[in-house]
């Protein structure tokens, strides 16, 4: 409860959490609210919001924009979460090994990380998806590949600062294995910055996925917000609703996740704990 007390102090974080919960509920209930395929040609194409039985209008082929947003929430959150988990795992392994052992291992791993960091991340993601065919898994891989270096840097820094602490030296003396020290002793102590970085990474992942889908590099068989915007872009002047509502959905979700991340930072960072 102490955590919640700290988190709650940040009003905007609570606001963000509320939106995020709403998006989660929408994603969870999408199939009940809008049964059937969101690609279904549900009625008159280009219907304005509120007409022909479309709450948020229909697109150029008569697909329900609202249904697309609900089902797209699943895609966005799924990809955001999966890509983040993969990126964090990669980052922890690379950063942990580099920070813990130092020396040539550190040099090698960090040079590899830098190779990834020097390529502009979105272009790199486009390249990866274009090479392996567009699908959910290739998008997750692409986002993870461009996102993990930041985590690796962060984790490496934490490990370097923690590896000479007394409690770690005590573990060495008791004969604990390196793996156990890294995972069971040091990792829990640098979990808070990882959680904060990870939460923000979810937002970035959603943005990258939307960008890829917008450019037509998404999974063609799965609806997503970026796809909806990309498909509606050509009719922006004549049917504003096709792009606008998915755009608002992306905006709110990414904003919410950023606010929650900020709140987590406030609540988990001991140096900020007493900030009033």
């Amino acid at each position: 409860m102490a955590f919640w007390r700290l988190f709650r102090r940040n009003r905007s974080a609570v606001f963000g959490l509320a939106i995020l919960v709403a998006v989660l509920v929408l994603a969870a209930t999408a199939s009940m609210l809008f049964p059937g395929d969101p690609f279904k040609l549900a009625g008159q194409p280009m219907s304005a919001p509120g007409t022909n039985g479309f709450l948020l209008g229909s697109d150029t082929l008569g697909r329900d924009v609202a249904s697309g947003i609900a089902h797209g929430a699943q895609t966005s959150l799924l990809i955001g979460a999966l890509a983040t988990v993969v990126a964090v795992m990669l980052g922890v392994v690379f950063g942990g090994l580099a920070g813990y052992y130092g020396g040539w291992i550190d040099d090698v791993l960090m040079r590899v990380t830098e190779v990834f960091q020097t390529i502009p991340s979105f272009l790199f993601a486009i390249l990866i998806v274009a090479i392996i065919k567009p699908s959910i898994s290739s998008i997750v891989i692409a986002i993870a590949v461009v996102s993990w270096p930041a985590v690796a840097r962060l984790v490496r820094g934490e490990y370097i600062s923690l590896r000479h602490r007394e409690f770690v030296q005590a573990c060495h003396i008791t004969g604990m294995s390196d793996a156990r020290i890294m995972l069971r002793e040091i990792l829990p102590n640098c979990l808070s910055p990882i959680i904060v970085a990870g939460s923000l990474m979810v937002a970035t992942a959603i943005l990258i996925e939307s960008g890829l889908s917008f450019l037509g590099l998404g999974d063609p068989n799965i609806i997503s917000w970026g796809f909806q915007i990309g498909a509606g872009r050509t009719v922006l002047r004549s049917a504003w609703w096709v792009c606008t509502f998915p755009g608002v959905a992306i905006l709110l979700t990414v904003l919410a996740i950023n606010l929650v991340g900020e709140g987590l930072n406030d609540a988990l960072n001991p140096r900020l704990r007493e900030r009033s």
Binding site: D37, F39, K40, L41, T60, L61, G216, P220, G230, A231, T234
Partner: peptide, 16 residues
């Protein structure tokens, strides 16, 4: 280009 993608999406629904 994009029109062909829309056509593909349409055909998928029509044949379903």
């Amino acid at each position: 280009g994009e029109q062909w993608r829309r056509a593909g999406e349409y055909l998928k629904q029509a044949l379903a």
